[in-house]
Structures are given as C-alpha cells and as structure tokens.
C-alpha cells in the first residue's frame, strides 16, 4: 500500500499537560481508520495534527507526497454568510461547477435553506454544510471529526454512501467518532486513544481491557487499581491480560468482570 503520512513520536501538550503522548503511526492510501476514546482524549487534536493545522509539541509528521485534505470539523461555525454564497465560493476555489454543489445540497435535503445564512441554521443543518464543503473537490485524505453530530437518519445514510464512494476512489478516511454504526460501516481499522497513547483494536496486542474485582480490605490494592463504586478497576493491555488475571486469582481477588475498553 502506498504510504501517505508518517507520525513519528508525535506529542502534543497544552499548558504542560500531554494530550497526545509519543504517537507513532503510518497512514496509507485508501485506508479507513476510526479514532475512538472518551471526550477530550485528543481525537480532534490528532486529526488536526495530521492535517497540519496545529503544530506538534515534539516529534515529526512527514507527508510522502502533496496531499489534499478535506475536513469536517466537529462543530462547523455559524458565520454570517449564506449557504449558497459560501458553498459556491468553495466550489470556485476548488475549480468545481456549481451544479456539483447543487447536487450535494439536494442529496442532504438542504435545498429550501440554500439562501439562509449559516448562523441562522439549526445545528444539524450546519453540520451538513460542514460535510458538504468537505465533499467538494478532489481529496486524497478526508478527516471527519464527529461528522454525524445532530444529523437525521436519512442524512446519515447519504453521508455513509458518499464516504463509501470516496473510499472506493482510493481516498483515505480518518474519522473520530463514538458511533458504532459509523465505525462498522465506514472503517476497516480502529484505534483508541487513552491517556495520550494510541492503541490499535485490530490485531489485539495493544488493545485495552478493564478488569473489575470485588473490593477486599484484607488485600493490598495494586497501585494502578482505581475505585469503581463497590469494586476496583484495572486497565491492562491485551498482551498482559492472561498474566494479570492469573496473578489476581493467586492473590485472592474475586473477579467480577472483564470489558473491552473503548
């Protein structure tokens, strides 16, 4: 596969706190990847680093060829310009006919609002504009940051269809989201971000599990155990799972559950 982008020990910190910690990742043409993790874990930051919109605190990002990025931000800003003026101007910048814009606007059921100013649109409609502008023009990599936020079911179907069309044309899709449906229908690999580190779900080695044990005052809690109601919780990589479970049993801990960590 043709390599497009390499992240080499890339870290990003804000006010001394690491959001992303020594991320190493190769991105290839036609790949489709989901980045998952809890809110604020660094998914959007990672996408913006890849696009070159923000600078890493350390490490290096290499682009193996000139790349045209499309970006669907998490919250497309409502500015005082009409949808028509904005999208037509984007089409002119991309050297694309206005008819392509009209077609996308129709597909996303926004025809009746085309003359409405962006700051007067509903959240879902505004997000659709965010998606449409990313689909205008030729793209090598498309970055989707929570792309279906506030969208109706019909628009979600249209969106999935459009993105799969792009995948068919060899466009690399990088997406941050929480929705299982999108991950299953649009991506072929999933990474989780936890404490600034990147863990690959496919292939298992670095995937995370949560182990729950019953609280037992007669046993010394491990340093990395955290309280979880009336239980204690431990996060382990899948490679360490078996060994950790055996050790817990040996020490007398009562296991109450093991979960995949997303």
């Amino acid at each position: 596969m043709e390599k497009l982008i390499t992240l080499d020990n890339v870290s990003k910190s804000y006010d001394g706190k690491y959001v992303l910690d020594h991320i190493t990742l190769d991105l290839y043409k036609a790949q489709s990847i989901a980045f998952t993790g809890h809110n604020g874990c660094g998914k959007s930051t990672l996408l913006k680093l890849i696009a070159g919109l923000i600078r890493s605190s350390s490490g290096k990002i290499s682009y193996h060829e000139k790349i045209r990025f499309g970006f669907v931000p998490e919250k497309f800003p409502g500015m005082s310009i009409s949808m028509r003026d904005y999208l037509y101007s984007i089409a002119e910048i991309e050297n694309v006919d206005h008819s392509e814009v009209d077609s996308l606007v129709r597909d996303f059921f926004l025809e009746s609002m085309i003359n409405t100013k962006l700051n007067e649109l509903s959240k879902g409609s505004l997000q659709k504009v965010g998606v449409i502008q990313a689909l205008i023009g030729k793209r090598d990599v498309i970055l989707l940051d929570e792309p279906l936020s506030g969208q109706d079911a019909a628009s979600q179907d249209v969106f999935i269809e459009k993105i799969n069309e792009l995948r068919g044309k060899g466009v690399t899709v990088l997406m941050s989201c929480h929705e299982r449906r999108l991950i299953d229908e649009l991506t072929d690999r999933e990474y989780t971000i936890n404490n600034g580190k990147l863990y690959c779900k496919e292939g298992g080695e670095d995937y995370l599990y949560k182990i729950f044990v019953k609280k037992n005052e007669s046993l010394t809690a491990w340093p990395d155990m955290t309280d979880h109601g009336n239980k204690r919780m431990l996060q382990v990589k899948s490679a360490e799972l078996k060994e950790t479970v055996l050790r817990l049993y040996k020490e007398g801990w009562e296991l109450t559950g093991i979960e995949e960590y997303i």
Partner: peptide
C-alpha cells in the same frame, strides 16, 4: 477570525499563499 472556519478555508486552497 474563527479558527475552525479559517482551518477549513486553508485546507481548500492549493497553497498557503492564496
């Protein structure tokens, strides 16, 4: 200037100069 709006505009251009 809205950073998100500006980021989207920048990515649509063929060069930073534009």
């Amino acid at each position: 200037e809205n950073d998100v709006f500006e980021e989207v505009l920048l990515l649509h251009t063929k060069s930073d100069t534009e």
